[in-house]
Design a protein around this nucleic acid. Structure first.
Lengths: 110, 110
DNA sequence: TTGTATCGCTACACATTTTGTAGCAAGAAG
DNA sequence: CTTCTTGCTACAAAATGTGTAGCGATACAA
């Protein structure tokens, strides 16, 4: 039984899902891509615009990985989060809420 | 009123906290560092070991940013999450739970 | 057929980031 | 003094990311 999870993992060779996840999310643009796709389905060029015109090279690299990991799907409508990916999207939403309070605390600390 | 939040943000110039967060978390090792510090206070060298011997150069760069953003603190005991950072740590814990079910779904999809 | 437009994506050279090794300076303890 | 551990820096090589131009496929119009 071998899955995409078993691929070489940067930083940790245990193959623990959380490490694989940190790996993927730690690559530039990944979080942002998931964030934008959480809001709506977008085609390649539109997604690029949303992500501050990330280079198509990078975008395509990320999308390829995200599709392999079953987080993003691609159909005639464009790119969107898979059912699994939606779960991760929700996590990002709660991260967003946390970030708002964090920002406030930073301001207050001034 | 100006905070560390206002610093140049890779990918987005709006300065929205979530974008700043994506920025920081999207740098290599940041998520892992937070993860390890969530478990316990560690000194520089110990933290390095936990993070698969990340180069001291990278580790120091990350720690510097995390301290500036008030997520990590450094005292005689070593490095640890700030009160604010703990909040982020909890998010990672729930990310961990999600990752476990994700892994299962990947295996099943095989 | 021949245009025109849009799509996903690739080529490639340049720029930035990350890595690995070595080791320094400061402090504690003998 | 020596020896040990600490946080951290220097620096060159390797890996990763960027920006622009544009290709091949597809769709629709003239």
């Amino acid at each position: 039984m071998e899955t995409k999870m078993a691929r070489p993992v940067r930083g940790s060779s245990t193959g623990r899902p959380i490490m694989r996840l940190f790996d993927v999310l730690g690559e530039r643009w990944t979080l942002r891509i998931l964030w934008e796709l959480k809001q709506e389905t977008l085609n390649f060029r539109a997604l690029r615009e949303r992500c501050d015109k990330v280079s198509p090279t990078s975008l395509n690299k990320r999308l390829k990985v995200l599709r392999e990991l079953n987080l993003v799907v691609h159909d005639e409508e464009g790119y969107s989060l898979s059912d699994t990916g939606q779960g991760l999207g929700s996590q990002l939403l709660s991260l967003h809420e946390w970030a708002e309070t964090w920002a406030t605390s930073l301001v207050d600390a001034k």
